[in-house]
């Protein structure tokens, strides 16, 4: 995948890019785009999808400060946003999805963990569906995995000001699934190995294969 370093507000057209930015930016997406970003020093970004655009965006953030990401969808646009948050410290991540006009689809999938047991993460996912807009679909699928005595709070907010919309959200926050742990240990895995495999699966399974090695390196020492 080509690397695209964004130094200023920019229009990105059809293609597949790993995008990198180091300050607050506004991006216009046009056409068919497959984007990814792996960031250890993240910055606010506003992404607008022009009419008839289709954007698939896989993002990983290792965050140590508050962060806001905003997506604006106008007409006939599709957004699929897969987002892994690995948190260090006490931080809030806000994701805004603005369905401004008609016939847009947005699928937001977020997975998050804390790196250390004294960390606290607050994820706010706001979906706004504008008044008088029609035929928009919004799905928020948000999961937090508690590894120790750390804290994860997820707020799946959907603000709908129209009747013609399909909007839903799924949120789960919890530790490892005890049935999965039992299954793996009853096949001979030790508890630490079972948890390691489940953590690797949780963090890498839904995101582009390109980031797998980097993510595994990041979560390797989390206990």
């Amino acid at each position: 995948m080509n690397k695209l370093i964004l130094a200023e507000d920019k229009v990105i057209k059809d293609g597949e890019y790993e995008i990198i930015w180091d300050k607050k930016l506004n991006i216009d997406c046009r056409g068919n785009l497959k984007l990814c970003n792996y960031s250890k020093e993240d910055h606010t970004i506003n992404i607008s999808l022009t009419d008839n655009s289709e954007v698939n965006f896989d993002k990983v953030s290792i965050i140590n400060k508050d962060l806001t990401l905003t997506f604006n969808l106008n007409n006939n646009s599709h957004l699929e946003f897969n987002y892994l948050i690995i948190n260090e410290g006490n931080n809030t991540v806000t994701i805004n999805i603005n369905m401004l006009e008609n016939n847009n689809k947005a699928k937001i999938k977020i997975r998050c963990i804390n790196k250390n047991k004294d960390n606290s993460l607050n994820v706010i996912c706001n979906g706004y569906v504008n008044k008088s807009s029609k035929d928009n679909e919004l799905t928020e699928d948000l999961k937090g995995l508690i590894l120790n005595a750390d804290l994860i709070k997820i707020s799946p907010n959907i603000y709908v000001d129209t009747n013609e919309v399909l909007a839903n959200h799924l949120v789960t926050i919890g530790s490892f699934n005890p049935e999965e742990l039992f299954y793996l240990t009853s096949n001979g895995l030790s508890i630490p190995s079972a948890k390691k495999l489940l953590l690797e699966s949780f963090t890498t399974n839904f995101i582009t294969e390109e980031f797998k090695e980097r993510i595994l390196l990041e979560v390797k020492n989390i206990e």
Binding site: N187, L197, E200, N205
Partner: peptide, 18 residues
């Protein structure tokens, strides 16, 4: 149980090596 994201090969390799 369904375990999404862990393949049979991964689990078996880990189980046997441990």
């Amino acid at each position: 149980v369904e375990v999404e994201g862990i393949t049979n090969a991964e689990m078996l390799r880990t189980a046997l090596s441990e």
